[in-house]
Amino acid sequence: MAGDKARLVAALCSLIVLAAFIDSTQSASCCLRYSRRPIPCKRLLGYTVQTINTSCDINAIIFHVPGRFVCADPAMNWTKRGVKCVEDMRRKMEEIMENGTSVATTSS
């Protein structure tokens, strides 16, 4: 009967080993519907494009605002404005960064 128990323990152990992989379970978080209210441009930190070409089933723009992500309908005007706003700001930032580094290199 000792062999019996050993087998049982072995079987349980293999289950637990399988179960140990659980923590890394991961799946994509998708936008399933859209926010109705527009978000003012000054709140936006960035955005992510969600397309139906991967595991998500609707197209969306995911805006990053402090502390959360907000789903927006890419067809809405405020969404397009928001994307443009982020792009403009990004360009401005890049210019500033470039100028900053060039100033730094000339001064040294």
């Binding site: 960035g46 494009v49 982020v86």
Partner: peptide, 8 residues
């Protein structure tokens, strides 16, 4: 996803 940030 394709993510874009304004502040690097």
């Amino acid at each position: 996803h394709n993510t874009f940030y304004m502040q690097g």
